[in-house]
Amino acid sequence: MNIFRFAGDMTHLISILVLLLKIYATKSCSGISLKTQELYALVFLTRYLDLFTGFISIYNTVMKLIFIASSLAIVWCMRVHPIVRRSYDKDLDTFRHYFLVAASFILALLLYEKFAFKEIFWAFSIYLEAIAILPQLVLLQRSGNVDNLTGHYVFFLGAYRALYILNWIYRYFTDIHFSRWIACVSGLVQTALYADFFYYYYISWRNNAKLKLPA
């Protein structure tokens, strides 16, 4: 465990806490894409299949449980909670995310570390996580004004993967066995998707103005 990866995991956790805060504090999920949240729940469920069969560390197990529980709780809130679900932008959140699931699964069948059940699902979860943010970014562009907490949520989500890239660079130079090309390349693509968001987030921070993404 190196500082970049720990910082990345903490930033990821912060992004989830910010989202939960937004939903709990405003009792609203406006500006949040349910499709992205469903994709994240699928990412965690397919990546942490070894939750009960393998044990790496207390930290690893606890974080996996937190990510699975929080992502399912957010999906539940947006689908079932009587007050929150009313503020869901159903007619704006129209990204056909089933294509993202299909594309990731097909790619996982072609590109994997070992042709084994868990490995295929692990690769699937890596590819899916890279593109899972797309419905959310599209929704932000469509919904025009973005409330602060939603902006911070997406920012921390992008920052977590950027820190993971530093972690992979660090491990590349220090850990001779390190060979996680699937995670590295996919992580680079994932972080690149945030590039323009980071730019507009920085501009809104510098001008102390509302975050606005061009349509």
């Binding site: 070894d50 790496i56 972690n167 996680r180």
Partner: peptide
Amino acid sequence: KADSEAKDEL
């Protein structure tokens, strides 16, 4: 190869 077995990253 040890690394690819134990997926130690989240």
